[in-house]
Write a protein that binds this DNA or RNA. Sequence first.
DNA 1: GTTCACACGTCAATGCCGTTGTCATAAGCT
DNA 2: AGCTTATGACAACGGCATTGACGTGTGAAC
Lengths: 251, 251
Amino acid sequence: MAERVVPEPHRRRRRPTKQGVVLSEQLIVDTTLRLVGSHGAEALTVRRLGAALGADPSAIYRYFHSTDDLLLALADEFVGRAQKGWRPTGDWRADLREIGLRLHAAYQTHPQAAILAAHRTTGREHEMRAVERILGVLRGAGFPDVEAVRIYHAFVDQGLAFAALDAAALALPPAAQAADLEVWQARYGRLDASTHPNIAATAGLLAQDMRRSGYPFALELLLEAAAARLAATDGNAATGGKTGGGTERGR
Amino acid sequence: MAERVVPEPHRRRRRPTKQGVVLSEQLIVDTTLRLVGSHGAEALTVRRLGAALGADPSAIYRYFHSTDDLLLALADEFVGRAQKGWRPTGDWRADLREIGLRLHAAYQTHPQAAILAAHRTTGREHEMRAVERILGVLRGAGFPDVEAVRIYHAFVDQGLAFAALDAAALALPPAAQAADLEVWQARYGRLDASTHPNIAATAGLLAQDMRRSGYPFALELLLEAAAARLAATDGNAATGGKTGGGTERGR
DNA sequence: GTTCACACGTCAATGCCGTTGTCATAAGCT
DNA sequence: AGCTTATGACAACGGCATTGACGTGTGAAC
């Protein structure tokens, strides 16, 4: 099998399908996102995608080597979209919070793709840009390089890890999703106080809190700890110290 | 279909399979872990599991309602293993750190299974015990209930999210695993300082730091922030305040 | 010791899935 | 106008989870 997939820039013959649709990489990507958005994560199959496109399922393999390849193409968008329109404000804590929430949110828009993509290092353009910016915010805030790198690592991995976690919850079949929530309401809510006093005392709070993502609060804790560390450092070196980063500051 | 699955404690007739194996919930769980451990996550299918057990694939449905149900059992097995031998010391911060690291470590022992299981709420025995204990540590430390629940949520989700993230990295084929690390060494290490000044300035540190899991440090930040919040609360109410939880304390 | 209900392993079938080899046809070049 | 070949369609393969029906041997009852 020579090579099934012809790279998009080299395509010349745009032959319509029986149903009159002219395929393209972009059309397939867009249709996939629409399909997943409107019919849920479980609708993402080659066969259904073919139907949604108005083409034979196998035609998709003229554009992507596999479904995983297609998934990566989708995922590549997310990091870029998360950054679109973002500008640093000069307030490092607000900036990091914004980046973290945007990144998380971008992945949540397409949970099925997010699960498979959130834990890969791409080394591609959008990712490099994000790394540069986050490091810039941290170094610009006055964190020493060693500390900036450690916090960068914790910050990014925590964001991606929660993105995958919450995406997985969203991607569950509705039945399992409901069952997961029901566990907190029904099972934990009825535990005996004599065997599980702490759960019994907080069951109501638990059931309520577990319905939301834990990420915003976890992010807040990370930022608080970072701020405390920064204050401890600056306390010795006064303010206005090293500001090696932040090249985009106030741009 | 009356009810296919008989709960483990009510089982009486232990009828061997054609190949002479006597099935049980525990045997299926153990075999699944062994199967996934030696043949990868993609080997986790009912058919292959049946073969590994020496039984017809459909026999598994006498013990678990679905593969998803089996997955929950796996998750609970990890949580149980993480807690084995754990005792609270009375130092809430050390206790939480220990629980977090144990939980993370337990999932890393079977990365392929952890990827699939880390995102689920099981509502099973070991999980309930862990929830009870963690809440006990937090409430025993003096956190008000609302705050205890929020921190519990952030703490657990952070641990599970990182468990899945790091498991995914470990589960990659060694070649891809090396390639992922190489990205930091080669690609990020050679970026131009004029376009990516912050990466260029910290490339060496980055390459070194990204080789380790970000979890221990992220956990430390979470604990630091929690401690700061506790101090702020206790500052008003002095010490020896409410100690509703911690039933296991000093046991 | 014999009987007997039924728990549980087995079989067969259903309807999905991703993927691929082959063919036919129309697009776009010469 | 003719040719090449890119690209869509078709059919088939093997694998998947799950289920209903079946029959066998277990373990309890007496």
